[in-house]
């Protein structure tokens, strides 16, 4: 899932300073799952904003909605009519969601309430960890299912640097050296030979990436002679 966290309140308040009618839109998928942008947070942020602005003597009208996904236009359309009544939309989705709405409702300002952090998994209650960098060239088969691209501070693919100490990363003592984990896993799986092979440098992705799956699309009308 995409892991995101809510921006500092001051920053959000500042973004909204010129708007008096704002619709906060939560997203019911990833950011709900990572406990940051779902229905409950929408309700809290709305109340906080109303109070902050009242205290400043500059009242704001805040609408609250949560849709299942902000990365699909069909879901975004569910709030089309409502959105038209506001000066701005404050999206509590990842960056994809913010842009999804902005793209769909071109004439209304869409503002991000969240900082999108990474593609991650749960690492115990209230904790998430980055595990995939979406590099577009998966090598997990040779690293025992542990990604050094996402989980090594230097994204090294030929083994560790010399900086790890006591099995911990030189960058943060909170992180294990991922290569230690890869090594242990490869030993367990009897696949250590993968580590001994030189991995060629990765092809770097070119932004923006786009995936068109012609095989999934309705064929264009056949032309003559084919």
């Amino acid at each position: 899932m995409i892991v995101a966290e809510i921006k500092p309140f001051g920053e959000i308040k500042d973004m909204l300073k010129d708007y008096n009618k704002v619709l906060i839109v939560g997203c019911g998928t990833c950011v709900t799952v990572c406990l940051s942008g779902g229905e409950r947070q929408v309700e809290l942020l709305a109340s906080a904003l109303r109070m902050a602005r009242k205290i400043e003597g500059n009242e704001i009208t805040v609408g609250e909605r949560t849709i299942l996904r902000q990365c699909d236009p069909e879901f975004i359309d569910q709030i089309k009519d409502e959105a038209a009544q506001y000066d701005a939309i404050l999206s509590m989705a990842c960056g994809a969601g913010v842009q999804g709405i902005a793209e769909r409702f071109g004439s209304i300002t869409v503002l991000p309430a969240m900082n999108t952090r990474f593609i991650g998994v749960s690492d115990g209650q209230g904790t998430w960890v980055e595990v995939c960098a979406a590099c577009g060239d998966c090598i997990l088969y040779k690293t025992g299912g542990i990604c050094p691209v996402a989980r090594c501070a230097k994204s090294l693919i030929n083994g560790p640097c010399g900086g790890s100490q006591g099995g911990l990363c030189e960058v943060s003592k909170d992180n294990p050296c991922v290569w230690q984990q890869i090594y242990a896993r490869l030993v367990k799986l009897n696949l250590l030979h993968f580590l001994k092979e030189i991995s060629p440098p990765k092809t770097r992705p070119v932004h923006p990436r786009r995936l068109v799956r012609e095989d999934l699309r309705l064929k264009k009308e056949q032309t003559k002679g084919v």
Binding site: G159, G166, Q180, Y183, L195, K196, I198
Partner: peptide
């Protein structure tokens, strides 16, 4: 190239040696 013979876990040292071999090969 460099190698760190004092890597303080057996795993780390083993990996240093594997990497050293790769460096020689490279």
């Amino acid at each position: 190239a460099v190698v760190n013979p004092g890597a303080n876990t057996e795993t780390a040292l083993e990996m240093q040696i594997i990497k050293m071999e790769k460096k020689i090969e490279a």
